[in-house]
């Protein structure tokens, strides 16, 4: 049985298509930014999927985005604010705690979701090609929706307590960016490591828990002894949280030098993470 075939449409008529080169994995890893850019729609869909799936078939849906930090805030207020009488830079403790919980909750969610992201998307990785970087990237971006919802709640609380933000509020996006960059930088390492060592999946919640105590979520940075202050401010999330309180509530701004150092630290972790991710990327499908 022979089937006659109509003449092929020449690809050249559509403009010469890109050439994909497939070679053995050697040489230094490269970051293909152009490829990342051409796949922004896929990034959008991955983020969209994460958001959609997260609250599917839940009774209160996105209400959880508010309820989680809200409950934590209430507990913090009871335990740290009342029982332990932790100072709050002269602000009502609930607002103070919530302004810290806002970026921290985002960071914690971004880190835990992206850390496991490659493993949980193993079925995609082994079946279809796309820049693997999109996976941790989308996991870092999707909790931003919860973040924005919570931000609205913070605004309501500020009104309730009569806190008027200063001009510094304009710097808020910069701190959001730093939080996202920190989460992405760490998750490049963690997600890639998790492909090979599932231990990482166990370690992440633990890391997040420790992280909360070494960041000024429940207490002000001013409580940290002076001689430890610099070391403390190297923690990017300390900078982010102090920045949030500064921008929203008008507390003391984060230490400038410490901020610069922690930004540099994030950049280094980010770059190293990219290299590592790129190197391991080649064996994801074989190992995951």
């Amino acid at each position: 049985m022979t089937v006659s075939r109509s003449p092929a449409v020449p690809a050249s008529a559509l403009g010469r298509p890109p050439v994909i080169q497939i070679k053995a994995a050697d040489g230094p890893a490269t970051l293909n930014l152009r490829e990342l850019a051409t796949n922004w729609e896929l990034l959008y869909f991955l983020v969209w999927r994460d958001i959609k799936v997260r609250y599917k078939q839940t009774a209160i849906g996105a209400g959880w985005a508010i309820l989680q930090p809200l409950t934590t805030m209430v507990i913090f207020t009871a335990v740290f604010g009342r029982l332990a009488s932790i100072p709050s830079d002269g602000l009502p403790y609930p607002v103070f705690a919530f302004a810290g919980l806002l970026p921290w909750t985002y960071f914690a969610a971004a880190l835990s979701r992206s850390g496991n992201s490659l493993v949980s998307n193993g079925n995609l990785i082994t079946k279809v090609y796309f820049p693997r970087l999109l996976i941790p990237l989308s996991a870092v971006l999707s909790p931003l929706v919860d973040f924005i919802i919570t931000l609205g709640l913070v605004a309501l609380m500020m009104m309730w307590y009569g806190v008027v933000p200063a001009v510094a509020i304009l710097t808020l996006p910069a701190f959001v960016l730093l939080a996202a960059a920190s989460a992405l930088a760490l998750s490049l390492w963690l997600s890639a490591l998790c492909v090979r060592y599932r231990d990482v999946g166990v370690v992440i919640p633990f890391l997040v828990q420790i992280g909360m105590y070494v960041s000024p979520v429940a207490y002000p940075t001013s409580l940290v002894p002076e001689r430890w202050r610099f070391l403390y401010s190297v923690n990017p999330m300390a900078v982010v949280i102090d920045g949030f309180r500064w921008a929203l509530l008008g507390t003391a701004p984060p230490d400038l030098f410490g901020s610069a150092v922690s930004c540099a630290l994030v950049a280094v972790i980010f770059y190293g993470g990219l290299l590592y991710f790129n190197r391991v990327e080649r064996v994801f499908a074989d190992v995951v």
Binding site: V19, I20, Q21, I22, K23, A24, A25, I125, T126, K127, V128, Y129, R282, V283, A285, D286
Partner: peptide, 11 residues
């Protein structure tokens, strides 16, 4: 491009 070859190439 899901997995890489050990040697050889393709375009």
């Amino acid at each position: 491009r899901i997995t890489f070859p050990t040697s050889g190439s393709a375009s």
